[in-house]
Design a protein around this nucleic acid. Structure first.
Lengths: 235, 235
DNA sequence: CCAGTTCCTTGATACCTATCAATACAATGT
DNA sequence: ACATTGTATTGATAGGTATCAAGGAACTGG
């Protein structure tokens, strides 16, 4: 008998609240479930999508995490986003049917694979699904534009505090602890994403700890004072 | 007889190539045209949408330009985007039916108004329209994430050079001159958008001119060397 | 056409963060 | 268990950009 975890259905998935399945009634969810396949687990550093490759599936993260990034002309990595359980990967590729970014597992990661063609057919018949897709895309549009503004005019400390609060909120939305969590990405990844150097990330994590806002131990972060952290994020 | 410009149809609109209408055949376009209304012209500083207001229409910019922005807790403006002719305004509001940002005309601006409800109905019947909406949203997702990366790790000069090149490309895509154009936003707006101070914008425009990359006269910009400008943008 | 206002430019200084450098720590696989 | 590699911390210095300050230019509305 195969591993149970590869047989989870949308109906039982703890992430369905954030997924495409969210607004669907039982029947619709069952139909969505029939087209969804479980992807074999990714290991740390495995690449899921490569820029330029044709888009065949949308992926939903069930557990683990990924980073997505582009490579510039000089092969320099630019991290665009981190994906947590419940997130959908591949929206940026819908435009022209080709992936625009790479995505790589930051740890062992389980995925649902949604064949694009079948999804499109299903969307015709199910207005709620169509709406949910629009909603998720719309949310992503606003979030990334908002982020741009939030980072651009802020100090390194504000950026990092904001980053930690956003992560915390995302974990909480997923039913996980927003108070203490593991940073699955490296300091360098965070720095790349926030436009700061590794050293600055390291220094500011120490500073935030000295300020009593957080407690860092290697990859583990505990937010000891949301109030303090929010103050430092400038909200 | 009313002003002709308020009677333009999708079929004749020079912006249709970038608009929702782009992939539609003549018949479909005619049907789209029936639900689209012409909005009365906005004057400079008129506000089109306010954060929190219910979303009733998507807007397509026919001529002129707008900025969209949020206001933080302290009432500080954070510019999120500039909208040029052919752009659609309102995608960020699809998620929960409420606008998430303000948008304000930077000059006299003409708009098409697309009732959301009718658009949804039409989208059910017209796969090409549905696809185009997805495509536009997907493009916007990638563009804003890409921008984030492009700005975050770059110097003030690189950011501004990149900004000018992007503007130039957008004008060119719209059949306008990408070589010389008018900045309809203020230096302060650009600085806000790029995360730089007004003074820095001013200084660097002068520097780019001294470098022979551009020619600035007040709001008017002429790109005298794309090659030079691209070098300075770091691509 | 003028007064008032907004917008833009330029200069001097101070602060923040990148960079360089060295060391320490953690993870990985043999 | 150890060596190797990748990752993280901390310090010293230099450079870039914000800020403060002042004057000039370009709009705006009466």
């Amino acid at each position: 008998m195969a591993n149970l975890s590869s047989h989870i259905h949308c109906q039982d998935c703890s992430m369905s609240a954030l997924c495409l399945a969210q607004p669907l009634d039982a029947d619709s969810m069952a139909r969505l479930d029939t087209i969804i396949q479980r992807h074999k687990p990714l290991h740390k550093r495995d690449v899921l999508t490569a820029a330029g490759a044709p888009l065949k599936f949308l992926y939903a993260v069930r557990s683990g995490s990924l980073k997505s990034y582009t490579l510039d002309d000089n092969g320099v990595e630019q991290i665009i986003d981190f994906h947590l359980p419940g997130d959908l990967v591949g929206f940026d590729a819908l435009a022209d049917g080709k992936h625009r970014s790479f995505s790589q597992a930051l740890e062992t990661t389980m995925l649902c694979e949604i064949p694009l063609h079948s999804l499109d057919e299903l969307a015709v018949q199910m207005p709620a699904l169509r709406k949910q897709m629009m909603k998720l895309m719309s949310t992503e549009i606003f979030a990334s534009k908002q982020l741009l503004g939030n980072l651009n005019n802020r100090s390194a400390q504000q950026r990092l505090a904001h980053f930690l609060l956003t992560l915390s909120q995302r974990f909480a939305d997923r039913g996980l602890s927003g108070k203490s969590f593991r940073l699955t990405m490296t300091r360098a990844d965070i720095g790349n994403y926030l436009g700061l150097s590794v050293e600055t990330i390291s220094r500011i994590l120490s500073a935030l700890q000295a300020d009593g806002a957080i407690d860092v131990q290697n990859k583990l972060v505990e937010i000891t004072s949301f109030e303090r952290l929010r103050d430092l994020a400038g909200h």
